[in-house]
Amino acid sequence: MNRIQQAFQQDKKLLNIYFTAGYPQLDDTVPILKALADAGADVIEIGVPFSDPLADGPVIQQSSSVALQNGMNMRVLFGQLKSVREQVPNTPILLMGYLNPVMQFGVENFCREAAAAGVDGVILPDLPLDDYVTEYQDIFRRHNLRPVFLITPQTAPERIRRIDELTDSFLYLVSGPGTTGGANTQAAGVQEAYFERISDMNLRNPRLVGFGISDKQSFEKACQHAEGAIIGSALIRALEGADDAPAAAAAFVSSVIS
């Protein structure tokens, strides 16, 4: 059983926190990661910044561009993560980013470095399923990394089943139409019907709901239909202008799960 699967053995709803590597300061990555884990985040996604993050809203775009200005890149990130498992031994860590920086670094190099750092999974929203299967699956498996794929209200059932077969981690349920950090503007009942439809499929993997989850209330609501939920933009907002970014990260986690 891998670390991600172990996390889902707990008898509770899981809080998955996303933050951008190298934000607000270049060297904040590991201190924030440790603060999040110590404060009780169950899964952590480290955002690998990209200049043109198509699936992200303004908050994560902005944090990404600050991180890039700070000098964050793949080499710097893997340098920072070298001994991260000494500080954060058990919490599942995923890298979330876009395909182009990974391709330029080399997919094999990326997977090797990630595995060496103790990373458990990878989320690349613009990596097509077919390309993953034909070109990358073997590399991911060789390095013991699990892919996480997104599912949206428009994803067809047979495609959901296929995605479910391709991983042993979790399914990332995008809560509704929109990029990250947006508010839920769907009519009452629409989102619930979607979550229930997925729940009724009895899939192999647990589900985490993401996009538009921002606080204790929306977290708990999302958890009614899934094994947990993912928060990103709201945490980034909490870090913005904070004197002590790790303390702000910890306080944010406490505000959601207290």
């Binding site: 198509l54 699936a55 613009d126 390309d131 428009q154 994803t155 495609r159 995008v174």
Partner: peptide, 20 residues
Amino acid sequence: ERGYYGQFGGAFIPEMLYPN
């Protein structure tokens, strides 16, 4: 069929755009 001209092309899109 998958939109390649030699090594160029394809459809590298997030799942949200896939159905469209």
